[in-house]
Design a protein around this nucleic acid. Structure first.
Length: 174
DNA sequence: CGCATTTGACCCGCGC
DNA sequence: GCGCGGGTCAAATGCG
């Protein structure tokens, strides 16, 4: 597996942010552009929550709520799901937000030498999806696109205070 | 043993 | 009607 040069010495496979090392790393990254440390994350979100733009293509995107993927008997595919794009500066594209994600696909993007990863929330009934893509132009830029909203509590273990702090700030941004 | 990840195949919408 | 691009599924594999 072609991993990234950044390795997590901690065994927390699901908690990239669990290590203070990562924290300081991210902090440093953000600090480069924002003097607010973690708060910079929100500042770094050039695309606020109001950036709900309609996705005119990919009907499958809007059909994950309660419809199957039959793709032939869809009556209300007009409801486009909002997409939230977060552009962050990080070497790691696995930006853990506290939820459990299961990767279900990976595709290479045109005009991009890096593949795009598709993740899905493993929570039952939760249809939230997210995709992570990094720009080939700037490998330090990672675009995380969230789709849908979580209707369940975060199931992250509380072994990370920094993580929770981070979460609160993210929510506060919205 | 259970679950997350991987990777190729398949499917669908759109443009030509 | 075919080809392309993008998205998702699903079986196999690896790992904790």
């Amino acid at each position: 597996m072609e991993n990234y040069p950044i390795l997590f010495p901690y065994s927390s496979s699901a908690s990239p942010f669990s290590s203070n090392m990562v924290k300081s790393h991210v902090l440093t990254e953000f600090h480069g552009n924002n003097p607010n440390g973690f708060l910079a994350l929100k500042t770094d979100m050039n695309v606020p929550c109001s950036d709900v733009k309609s996705i005119s293509q990919s009907g499958s995107f809007g059909g994950s709520e309660s419809e199957e993927k039959s793709g032939k008997k869809k009556a209300e595919k007009k409801i486009r799901k909002p997409r939230y794009a977060f552009q962050t500066r990080s070497q790691v594209d696995i930006l853990d937000d506290g939820y459990r994600w299961r990767k279900y696909g990976q595709k290479a993007v045109k005009n991009n030498k890096y593949p795009r990863s598709y993740y899905r929330c493993t929570h039952q009934g939760c249809t939230v999806k997210k995709q992570v893509q990094r720009l080939s132009k700037d490998e330090g830029i990672v675009v995380t696109t969230y789709e849908g909203m979580h209707t369940h509590p975060i199931e992250k273990s509380t072994d990370n205070f920094e993580h929770i702090l981070n979460q609160m700030q993210i929510y506060a941004a919205c």
